[in-house]
Amino acid sequence: MEKRNIVKCHASGIRAVKDAMDVLSGNWKLPILTSLYEGTKRFKQISREVEGISDKMLSKELKELEMNQLVKRTVLDTFPPKVEYELTEHAATLEKLLDAMRDWGLLHRQKIVGK
């Protein structure tokens, strides 16, 4: 296999990949982010789009994404209060990564499953 210039410095590159994996790991964070790329959404909208996620897990993952400054939570001054979630500018830096992962996933599914 041809060596590519994926990381400039081996040790710092490994740390950077680990940092990214720590923030984005799990079954749900990337699908949540992908859902929010379509625009601002309320909790139940995200829950419906990210099939299989429980409300408890969605709440936990949204809090972690907010902590890592990828998601902004806004409580609207209504009765009852409404909460909306949207991506931050920092999350926009993941767009190329998510596009590449989608493309690879489609290619991989085609190769392995044939659909």
Rank of each mutant, 00 (worst) to 15 (best):
Y85Q: 01
K72P: 01
P80S: 08
L87N: 02
Q110Y: 09
L76A: 07
K82G: 06
E66R: 07
I112T: 06
C9S: 12
Q45R: 01
K18M: 11
M101C: 12
K96E: 09
I112E: 07
V23P: 02
A11H: 12
K111C: 03
L65E: 00
A20D: 07
R48P: 01
R73F: 04
I46Q: 13
G39F: 01
E84W: 10
H90G: 10
G13A: 06
K60D: 15
L107H: 14
H90Q: 15
V7D: 05
I112G: 01
F43V: 06
T40K: 09
K18D: 11
T78R: 07
A16M: 11
E64D: 14
R15G: 05
S25V: 00
K60P: 07
T88Q: 05
A16Q: 14
W28K: 00
Y37Q: 14
D99V: 14
G13S: 07
A16P: 05
V83F: 12
S25R: 04
M67S: 01
S25L: 01
A16S: 13
A100G: 11
N5A: 08
I32K: 03
D77S: 09
N27V: 03
E49T: 05
I53N: 00
K56Q: 09
K41E: 04
D19W: 06
T34D: 04
Y37I: 09
Y85D: 00
C9I: 12
L98R: 08
L62N: 12
E49S: 09
S35W: 05
A91L: 06
K63H: 13
E89I: 08
L98N: 01
L98P: 00
K60G: 10
L98M: 08
G26T: 01
Y85S: 00
V83D: 09
E61K: 07
I14L: 15
Q45H: 02
A92Y: 00
K44E: 14
Q110K: 13
L58V: 03
I46S: 10
I14C: 11
N27S: 09
L33T: 02
Q69P: 02
S35M: 08
E51F: 13
D103V: 13
M1W: 13
V50D: 08
A91S: 08
R73I: 06
L24D: 04
V113K: 03
K8G: 13
E66T: 06
K56V: 10
L30G: 04
L33P: 02
Y85K: 01
K115Y: 15
S54E: 02
T74K: 10
L30P: 04
M67Q: 05
K60I: 15
G26P: 02
K111D: 04
W28P: 00
L65V: 01
G105K: 08
S35H: 03
L70D: 02
I6A: 08
S59E: 10
V50Q: 06
L97N: 01
A20E: 09
L36H: 06
K60Q: 15
